[in-house]
């Protein structure tokens, strides 16, 4: 599917521009021959539209519709295109699994995202364009992608557009509760009844206590 802007309905409010994960939408002056009355209008770069539909959902004026693509295309980065050791190191540094599906919608693994970063995708939108990740639900993979970029030294990528809100910053994570490898005392006190030590051991890779109890593994 690909988006289409309905010129006479578009008010140029730019909300769609602010939420597109691949930055496929931009704002420009309306041409004299275009329908509609507002001075500004949104323009779509069709090849960059990956059917996320955030624009469709946020548009208050029903000025965006989706159409089937005449020629569907496949998006992805070959994991073999980057050095395997560098991929593993980047995933480790970011605290994500290299074989894990980070984007459950596009079925993008940590390794594929790392390869794309190593190949030059240095912003969330560049990663989305290179892999298709963050263009489905646009939620579950959001933070691991920011973590991977930060681990690769690109955590300071400027927001695009500058006033947009397709992403903000890195939020607090469980591993941030550790101080010198242990759960910080104030955290343990503030959140009693949580098996924090056990959960953080699991998050750190120690699954020794994870033994199936009569059920399926």
């Amino acid at each position: 599917m690909v988006a289409e802007i309905i010129a006479e309905r578009c008010t140029g409010c730019a909300l769609c521009v602010y939420v597109c994960p691949t930055v496929a939408l931009t704002l420009r002056d309306r041409r004299a021959d275009e329908a509609g009355t507002h001075r500004r209008i949104v323009e779509l770069a069709e090849p960059d539209c990956y059917n996320a539909q955030n624009c469709l959902e946020i548009c208050p004026d029903e000025a965006i519709v989706m159409h089937p693509l005449t020629e569907p295309f496949t998006v992805g980065t070959d994991v073999a295109s980057a050095d395997a050791d560098e991929i593993r190191a980047l995933c480790m540094a970011a605290g994500v699994g290299s074989k894990q599906l980070i984007c459950m919608c596009a079925e993008t693994t940590g390794a594929e995202l790392a390869a794309a970063i190593l190949n030059g995708a240095h912003s969330p939108e560049a990663l989305s364009l290179a892999t298709g990740a963050r263009t489905g639900c646009t939620e579950l993979c959001h933070q691991p992608i920011l973590q991977l970029l930060a681990a690769a030294g690109h955590g300071d990528a400027p927001r695009n557009p500058a006033r947009g809100f397709q992403w903000y910053g890195i939020a607090a994570t469980a591993l941030g509760l550790l101080a010198d490898g242990e759960v910080a005392d104030d955290v343990r006190e503030a959140f009693s009844h949580y098996p924090l030590d056990s959960d953080l051991r699991v998050l750190s890779g120690d699954f020794s206590e994870f033994a199936p109890k009569g059920g399926q593994p």
Partner: peptide, 23 residues
Amino acid sequence: RFETRSVYHSLFGNRSGSIIPRA
């Protein structure tokens, strides 16, 4: 927002995930 929801799903154990909404 997405950032916070993503942490709940992807970067916390599910026994400790409710620390986020409580915080």
